[in-house]
């Protein structure tokens, strides 16, 4: 009986999570939007397209070394949410970001996102697709490619959101030395110190998953942020309750 209960717990947890996402998304759709705290990384990203237009220099977006069929999928999807925002801006302004990645599957999704944003204009879509670059599957080779990209294209700004490892510092340092506006984010705790050291603004851990909510105000993303907060409170109370129970016992 207890064994069955333990096996059913993850399913129950997921069902509660699903219900919370639906509930909060529905609330947001009905106009009950929460006040989102300001995240400076996203504020900077919002201003980058304007800076790229003013200076006439390229904007670079790195989707990292993660893929879409492994444990790094969520990080890559977070990077794709940023791309989706920048692609929509590009469709309006005509300044397409240069997008790089290490996984070829991610490249296909990036092309899809870019094509989706330029759906009304085939010519500009074709031009935007030229800026999507698959570099190399190995993390160090990818980092070398991005370093070269930042140097040769004389990028105005770089946004690196996705899955990264130690190789982040190689790219981040080039951006820092060239005084390029730089926003970095990853969920890998080992890469976060490198991002903090080299980037102007850091998207710390789970903040990268909030890209859709902050940049595009997507209802489902805001709803899932609220669901995450609700679950987090549940976990905090469970931990606190456990401590109390064991202390009293």
């Amino acid at each position: 009986m207890i064994a069955n209960l333990i096996l059913a717990t993850p399913v129950l947890f997921l069902l509660i999570f699903v219900w919370l996402i639906y509930y909060f998304t529905h609330r947001v759709q009905n106009g009950k939007k929460p006040l989102l705290r300001s995240i400076r990384g996203f504020e900077l990203i919002k201003g980058l397209t304007g800076r790229a237009i003013e200076t006439g220099r390229a904007l670079h977006l790195s989707l990292g070394v993660g893929g879409l069929a492994d444990s790094t999928t969520a990080d890559t999807l977070a990077g794709l949410a940023v791309l989706s925002y920048l692609a929509q801006k590009a469709a309006i302004t005509g300044v397409s970001p240069t997008v790089s990645m290490a996984n070829p599957m991610t490249m296909l999704y990036a092309q899809n996102a870019m094509r989706g944003a330029h759906i009304d204009d085939a010519d500009s879509a074709e031009e935007a697709l030229r800026h999507i670059r698959w570099i190399a599957p190995q993390p160090t080779a990818y980092a070398a490619g991005v370093m070269n990209l930042l140097a040769i294209d004389k990028a105005e700004a770089t946004v690196m959101v996705g899955h990264f490892g130690d190789e982040y510092l190689l790219m981040g340092e080039v951006a820092a030395r060239r005084e390029v506006a730089h926003v970095g984010g990853s969920s890998n705790p080992n890469a976060l110190p490198f991002i903090y050291l080299s980037a102007d603004q850091t998207l710390m851990g789970e903040e990268i998953y909030a890209a859709g909510a902050y940049l595009q105000q997507r209802h489902s993303h805001i709803g899932s942020l609220m669901a995450q907060d609700a679950i987090r409170w549940l976990i905090v109370f469970t931990i606190f309750g456990g401590i109390l129970y064991h202390t009293i016992k």
């Binding site: 998953y209 859709g212 993303h221």
Partner: peptide
């Protein structure tokens, strides 16, 4: 704290795709 937040964010991202919201 970071890992707990990342785990919740990952689950939420996966569920959004499974629910067809994303």
């Amino acid at each position: 704290g970071i890992l707990l937040g990342v785990a919740l964010g990952t689950i939420a991202t996966g569920l959004r795709v499974l629910m067809g919201l994303d």
